[in-house]
């Protein structure tokens, strides 16, 4: 049983009878028939975001920043250029800005107006990121939002919320967990969750066996 709490995402039919599954099928046929779109291009787009681009990209960047101080400096100075060193960039990430968590400051990213998000590093945003509860509350009561994710920060930790109201797309560089001194970049990347890079989570502690 999926534990999904977003019934509105599952093929629902709106109260006005609008059936998105049927509408989009008809629309695609029509746009292909009129020569406006090529189904092969649609397949490439879906394939890219379903499989090729996702939080594993951002995790690699974070792991490198944790292990390479020069890269970290480049990443914080120009996120777009530093991400391009991995070949990450493009649509939805034309202007990447990376902000760093410290023991005194926790960063959180939101787009109150819609869903702006660093696509090349994190893929498409999850439903909760685009949902009214997150968009409405992140800027006024971020600590309560963090509690929804099981994250409780010390009251002395300052919180900085970045509302992505332009094409600048933000990524959080989370704190490196303790006890990870000897881990390789690959092992480190496995500790970097999507939530950690949005700021609604922290990087995972290494499992005992990995420490």
């Amino acid at each position: 049983m999926p534990s999904c709490a977003c019934p509105s995402e599952h093929g629902r039919v709106a109260t006005d009878g609008y059936d998105p599954a049927a509408r989009v099928k008809a629309l695609e046929q029509l746009l292909v028939e009129k020569g406006y779109v090529d189904p092969a291009a649609l397949d490439v787009i879906v394939e890219t975001y379903a499989h090729e681009v996702g939080p594993m990209n951002g995790a690699k960047v974070v792991a490198r920043a944790w292990t390479d101080p020069d890269f970290r400096a480049r990443l914080l100075a120009d996120g777009t250029a530093a991400a391009a060193e991995f070949g990450f960039g493009g649509r939805g990430g034309e202007h990447i800005v990376v902000v760093e968590n410290t023991s005194r400051l926790h960063n959180l990213i939101v787009c109150t107006l819609c869903s702006c998000y660093p696509w090349p590093l994190l893929g498409l945003p999850p439903v909760w990121y685009k949902s009214p509860p997150y968009r409405s509350r992140a800027v006024i009561e971020p600590r309560a939002v963090l509690r929804d994710f099981g994250v409780v920060l010390p009251e002395t930790t300052a919180i900085r919320v970045w509302d992505s109201t332009a094409e600048t797309r933000y990524l959080v560089l989370p704190l490196r967990p303790e006890g990870t001194g000897g881990l390789s970049e690959d092992r480190l990347a496995a500790l970097v969750t999507r939530e950690a890079m949005i700021g609604t989570g922290l990087a995972l502690a290494p499992a005992r066996a990995d420490a």
């Binding site: 995402e9 093929g11 999850p126």
Partner: peptide, 16 residues
């Protein structure tokens, strides 16, 4: 709007 409800193991898309 109530709490934020993250979905575990959320798929990229929920329907074709």
């Amino acid at each position: 709007f109530g709490p934020v409800r993250p979905e575990k193991e959320e798929p990229v898309f929920h329907a074709p």
